[in-house]
Amino acid sequence: MIPTKEQWLRALYERHGKERQNAFLSATVAVCGLGGLGSNIAIHLARAGIGKLILIDFDRVDITNLHRQQYKASQIGMYKTEALADNLREIAPYVELEAFTQRITQDNAIKLLASADIICEAFDDAERKAMLTDIVLTQLREKYLVAASGMAGLYDANSIKTRKITSKFYLCGDEESDVSDGIGLVSARVALCAAHQAIAVLRILAKQFEI
């Protein structure tokens, strides 16, 4: 049986404490790209009881995504925005969701991200990662960016880390392992990097800004 909103909130307050949970509930977080990083980040944040998630991706679920992305075989062919929204509603039915099934570009990024407090960069293409970083940190200067670089291959888990680059910019990953080197992506390591990003978001909301 699905709990009522009151029951869900009570359970969250019990686990996270009132002050911290209120900070999570009042936040809007955008997840840019819903692949291995973004699908995992969104699930962590929904479980934590974030107030609103903005989900952005242009792509559909493909069979080659299932080895690391939080979709089901039955969802192949669906837009990732719709498939992930379905999965998130099963996990945390009272998190507000807004989905944009489109590619983020120089022209639409500012409008798509306008209402977000914190933005998670979760693309897989290095040039698009750098593009979004440039837009957010130089044109949306009041917002935080939590980005990722380097989680490919089956390298040591402990090489994935979080660094604070500026007062608004956190970077997660090993900053080296590049999927274009043919080393592949493994679910556990991508999910680890996504967890670093989710923790960075929750720590910012809890006003724990230092690493």
Binding site: G33, D124, D125, A130, G150, S167
Partner: peptide, 30 residues
């Protein structure tokens, strides 16, 4: 010095004595 330099300004950003700069590289995968 604590801020991200806009890409469009790389060509006009003159490096000054005492500047502290970090270049962050993005690699693919996500």
């Amino acid at each position: 010095n604590g801020d991200i330099v806009p890409k469009a300004q790389y060509g006009i950003s003159v490096l000054r004595d005492g500047d502290s700069i970090e270049v962050v590289s993005f690699v693919g995968g996500g």
